[in-house]
């Protein structure tokens, strides 16, 4: 592009000349955009578009790819593990919401009422977020050990020890506890900011009018953070439905597929069995579900911004 501009002084065909003059003011703007446009095209849009192509291809790195139509999709639906994976994913999302959703909101409410050490408590609640994933796994494998600290604590309460990671009943819940421990602090801080943003005069006025503390929470605090609640709900849904790393590291999908999530199944099909076609088809199916959800989230956000 620069080379072309340098030629302006030389005689050019009139049409090219006017075209260049028309684009001249945009030169720097477009030049600055160009690298990012290339990066986005090559590393984001191309794989996104290509996922449809790969989902209909038998990907063979050695003998070359061949078009197979909907064969990959048929194999996805005939896979017995897929139903288990979908069920497990929904169960994980459900547990994540049951355990992980109320904790941050209650913690934020409590923190906002703390009169001393609020800053310190805020930092401590956030602290688990900074633990690198691999350290988290090592840490919790130890805590969950059959004779580890968690079972020891249960022993004090005279509760039978639980085989956290190897019991089909508990394996998924164990992973939910672990990731709730790590992530709820960040959500708490977001709620906390919203709660502290509620004008204090409202409470003052309500109190003068005789509203109880409980009523103030229900009628003033909760309505003011309703939108954040909804946003966090959808965001948590989208992020937990995609999880696989903790499941891979903690239990490798076991025991007996009890923690095999949908994305872990994709990863195993793709990177362990090298069945890239089927894995891509699974990705496209996931894409349809999650993208409609995130479009819904976007609408919500827009609504909040306008409110």
């Amino acid at each position: 592009m620069e080379a072309k501009v340098k030629q302006i002084g030389k005689p050019l065909t009139p049409s090219l000349h006017t075209a260049l003059r028309r684009w001249r003011p945009y030169l720097w703007g477009l030049l600055f955009l160009l690298p990012e446009i290339i990066i986005f095209s090559v590393f984001q849009w191309k794989p996104i578009v290509m996922s449809i192509y790969y989902s209909m291809t038998n990907v063979d790195v050695i003998h070359g790819n061949s078009f197979v139509g909907f064969e990959n999709y048929r194999r996805v639906f005939e896979d017995d593990a897929i139903l288990i994976a979908v069920k497990n994913t929904l169960y994980y999302v459900f547990l994540g919401l049951v355990i992980g959703f109320w904790v941050p909101s209650v913690a934020a409410l409590a923190l906002s009422e703390l009169r001393w050490f609020r800053g310190t408590a805020r930092l401590i609640v956030y602290l688990p977020n900074i633990v690198p994933a691999v350290v988290l796994y090592g840490m919790w494998k130890w805590l969950y050990d059959p004779i580890g600290p968690v079972n020891q604590f249960l022993g004090w309460l005279s509760i039978e020890p639980v085989r956290w990671l190897t019991d089909k009943m508990w394996a998924m819940a164990s992973i939910v506890f672990m990731s709730t421990w790590q992530h709820f602090g960040a959500t708490t801080l977001i709620y906390l900011a919203a709660i502290l943003g509620v004008p204090k005069d409202l409470y003052e006025a309500a109190e003068i009018d005789g509203a109880r503390v409980w009523h103030r929470i229900i009628y003033i605090t909760l309505p003011s953070i309703k939108m954040i609640f909804l946003l966090m709900f959808v965001m948590q849904f989208i992020s937990t439905s995609q999880s696989y790393e903790a499941h891979l590291a903690m239990t490798d999908g076991g025991p007996n597929n009890a923690t095999l999530t949908y994305m872990l199944h994709v990863v195993k099909n793709g990177f362990y069995k090298f069945d890239f076609g089927k894995a891509s088809a699974m990705g496209v199916l996931m894409f349809v579900v999650l993208t409609s959800l995130s479009v819904a989230l976007y609408r919500l956000q827009r609504k909040e911004d306008h409110a």
Binding site: S51, Y54, G283
Partner: peptide
């Protein structure tokens, strides 16, 4: 691209880089 969850095109992403 903010609306498209990254893990859904993980496999094509890998094949593309390859």
């Amino acid at each position: 691209t903010l609306l498209i969850p990254g893990s859904t095109y993980m496999i094509p992403n890998y094949l593309n880089l390859k």
